[in-house]
Write a protein that binds this DNA or RNA. Structure first.
Lengths: 194, 194
DNA sequence: GTCTATAGAGTGATAGAC
DNA sequence: GTCTATCACTCTATAGAC
């Protein structure tokens, strides 16, 4: 019997719960027992919803994350009417998504830990899309392409580093300060090298 | 029979090999089979050298990393005769240590992945020592304490983020560019807010 | 004999797959 | 629930140095 009071029966509703387990324990640490405990489902139910097992659960989680970022972050950066608004929206959404530094980036975790190269392409495109979308917004707001590419790379890396340091020091404010600094730089220095 | 041609017999010489396995697979992914294969040693030998098993191996690896950084990075930052030279030395050593972005930071990995909170204090003090040492060097080279603290936090986080992004994009140059940018900023702007 | 380092069979527990 | 594989780990046996 699972410890949760009720089980989640819809596959879509299950994804965020599975995501949290993968985020906190990594792929190898996310055992079926933990995944079952978190969802309140037995192994049979999990395999009914995800016939390919843990691999499929993880793929679904990564796809869900990618969907969210495409919709809420990358697309506004690329195609929004106001690039500066898109950038401000990115900072706001990212701060909310990572709970101001209390939540870690699953894609960042998978970037660091080799899981038999299974999710390497998902990890690659997540970060490639993010940097390209931010670069596009920066170009549209007046940066030279080379500057925009460099800045985009630096901001995306800084966010990941902020999450690492916030978690390491158990101080979520580290992440928030990182966001604030870069938001101010991108806003106040639209065309000079920072 | 192990696949390696010869076994490593000294505990000290074993540490870097064990470290690489933990770095690439994480704590849970670093099975004794993998550790044995990498070292060319059987379980008996590993348990002879590390009676408490995987936990002790990992603790020894983290202690070895901490020793190296204390000696080669933190101490020159804190106590070196020239703080600017200490900072330049940090950038050079860090670039070499992480093989210009081809190697990942084990402490950063452990910061992101919850391993039953076993190594949380090691992770915490590694990053706390690093930021404090860098802050001290920045103060000694003319920054106000508040500026120095902020900058130190940002540079350490940026390095971690550079490693994450370099690994994610499979492009070590991302990490090198991160180092270069911050080295130039710390060198050319000794007392203004960056 | 003692000591140190080695390998590896064998332990129960738990993994993921079905 | 049941399966097999693998987990971390224990234990015995063995080797050579002294």
């Amino acid at each position: 019997m699972a410890s949760s009071s009720k089980a989640i029966t819809q596959r879509a509703a299950l994804i965020p719960v599975l995501a949290e387990v993968f985020r906190n324990f990594g792929y190898e640490g996310a055992s079926l027992a933990r995944l079952g405990e978190a969802t309140g489902l037995g192994k049979g139910s999990l395999y009914h919803l995800f016939p390919d097992g843990k691999d499929e659960m993880c793929t679904a989680v990564l796809a869900d994350i990618d969907d969210w970022f495409q919709r809420e972050v990358f697309q506004p950066l690329r195609d929004g009417p106001d690039p500066q608004a898109g950038i401000a929206h990115m900072f706001a959404q990212v701060e909310a998504y990572f709970l101001s530094g209390r939540k870690v980036c699953l894609v960042g975790v998978f970037a660091l830990v080799n899981v038999r190269d299974r999710f390497a392409t998902s990890v690659h495109s997540y970060f490639a899309d993010w940097t390209r979308a931010l670069q596009a917004a920066l170009e549209r707001s007046g940066h030279a392409p080379a500057d925009a590419a460099m800045l985009a790379e630096e901001v995306v890396a800084a966010m990941q580093g902020g999450l690492v340091l916030a978690r390491a020091l158990d101080d979520p404010a580290v992440f928030v300060r990182t966001l604030r600094r870069w938001q101010q730089r991108l806003h106040t220095e639209p065309r000079s090298a920072v």
